[in-house]
Write a protein that binds this DNA or RNA. Structure first.
Length: 271
DNA sequence: CAAAGGTCCTGCTCGC
DNA sequence: TGCGAGCAGGACCTTT
């Protein structure tokens, strides 16, 4: 479920409740997430103070003096801040009790999320080390995409969804960005010019920035950390719009499968 | 039965 | 033939 804007919205939402709070207790109700949660995790987290929560790609990094908790929400995960008297819900797998009396709860029906503890700097962790640049950083440029895509035949949509190339471009924003840039999602990445990569980089940055500003777009069950439903109806131009008229040319939006993911585009406007 | 917002891992293919 | 990089598909799950 969460794309980068939702993860960033989550980070901003929970930070005021977590920052400088000490974790007094950790409850693991179901350890079978994407990878089994380490048995040692509760004892490593207990008594640690959360100095900050940062984000790298779609990972949330809970920074403490002793180490960092690396959390991923997977496809269907969400975090919410509860009071002690609020009952747990179905699929609440992990709870962090905080010194201010709040409880941070991880809910994840599909259990594709993950939790890792590292004593090193998070950047050195296996899951983080090999990641490409942040899309909103200045290091993410057209030159970077152009240089790394030479001689590559993979579809451009799969290319920009590859976290080793650039992080944080999920299935929705890949389609949306390619539409804005006028690039056919199936085009081989190695056959996109530098000029068109300029348009694409701008489109990715604009799309993500706008979504973060809007508080994250959501489709089904994204719950904001304070418990408010995050049903922000984002205006998608092509995602989920199969058969509806293209805003630019009026032709029906097409749907294809690329890399086993639904892909939406305009056959006329995107080449 | 199909599809849903993620992404790591495995094994195959391709070109040097 | 061997090797590494690139690539497709599978895997992990529940809900609608």
């Amino acid at each position: 479920m969460p794309e980068l804007p939702e993860v960033e919205t989550t980070r901003r939402g929970i930070l005021p409740y977590c920052q400088q709070q000490t974790i007094s207790e950790v409850t693991i109700r179901n350890r079978q997430l994407r990878w089994p949660i380490a048995r040692s995790l509760p004892s490593q987290l207990r008594h640690q103070r959360i100095d900050d929560i940062q984000r790298r790609a779609k990972y949330l990094l809970f920074i403490t003096k002793a180490g960092t908790l690396i959390l991923h929400l997977g496809m269907s995960g969400s975090l919410r801040v509860s009071n002690k008297d609020e009952a747990i819900q179905k699929h609440d797998h992990v709870e962090l009790m905080l010194s201010n009396g709040k409880i941070l709860r991880l809910n994840d029906p599909r259990r594709f999320g993950s939790l890792h503890w590292t004593r090193q700097a998070a950047e050195k962790h296996k899951l983080i080390r090999t990641l490409g640049p942040e899309p909103l950083d200045d290091q993410f440029t057209a030159e970077h995409l152009y240089a790394t895509s030479r001689n590559r035949r993979v579809a451009i949509k799969n290319f920009i969804m590859n976290s080793h190339i650039v992080v944080g471009v999920g299935n929705i924003y890949a389609s949306e960005s390619l539409y804005l840039a006028g690039i056919n999602p199936g085009r081989p990445a190695g056959r996109v010019s530098l000029q068109r990569y300029e348009k694409l980089v701008n489109a990715i940055k604009e799309t993500l920035r706008a979504a973060i500003e809007s508080g994250g777009s959501t489709l089904n069950d994204f719950i904001k950390p304070d418990g408010q439903p995050g049903y922000f109806q984002h205006h998608f131009r092509v995602y989920g719009k199969t058969g509806l008229p293209c805003e630019q040319c009026g032709q029906p939006i097409s749907q294809v499968t690329l890399g086993q993911r639904s892909t939406f585009y305009c056959k006329t406007c995107q080449r």
